[in-house]
Design a protein around this nucleic acid. Structure first.
Lengths: 97, 97
DNA sequence: CCTTTACTTGGCAATTTTACCAAGTAATTT
DNA sequence: AAATTACTTGGTAAAATTGCCAAGTAAAGG
């Protein structure tokens, strides 16, 4: 793959990779209903709080979500209003064969 | 993350992961215009033919594309008609900050 | 039937991703 | 101001992904 072509798709790939994990996908879905603090998302997906925080930083670095600190909590919200349609599309694909 | 929640998203994640690579994304884009044989796609992204073939098998296992052999060539086509809208969505996200 | 063409598959080293623990920071409460 | 709460960051071991080479298969041509 030429360097040119590669870089043409890098931005897209960063965003798609940020969705390519069950925990991050679950969080993205939850965030479609409105902002959530990290502890809410931790309740949703379980595991160590640091793991949740790192997943969120992947999504944040990709530009998929944005964060705001209010009091002790950090609230995350989606910056992409168009995930729902994509999920419907993805779900329409039956497993192969 | 509970096992329940994880499996709920596994199918989606498989498909999204199949798009989460510059070469595979480039191939998906090319396939939106119609079927292509592996050699066409190799000309597009370069690298070893076996690498291209393995990328295609990732997409095939995910149900994103299907293949048909005609003569010596294997032709791949998209099974998902709805990628275009998602790409527009992805492109609308500016890099963070 | 032997060769060529167009792929696919197995194997493997290098890179990337993931998830935990431990330690650090910032705002709030006592 | 000391302790608590809600995170974030650094480090690291384990797992997954990537890309090449070598070897294998199936269809077509000579």
């Amino acid at each position: 793959m030429t360097k040119n072509l590669k870089s043409r798709f890098e931005h897209r790939v960063t965003i798609i990779k940020a969705l390519a994990h069950p925990s991050r996908l679950a969080m993205a879905e939850a965030l479609q209903e409105g902002e959530r603090c990290v502890c809410d998302l931790r309740d949703l997906i379980g595991g160590d709080l640091s793991t949740v925080s790192k997943h969120l930083s992947v999504m944040r670095d990709a530009g998929l979500v944005e964060a705001e600190k209010r009091g002790l909590n950090v609230y995350y919200r989606l910056r992409c209003p168009c995930l729902l349609g994509f999920f419907d599309c993805v779900d329409s694909l039956a497993p192969r064969r």
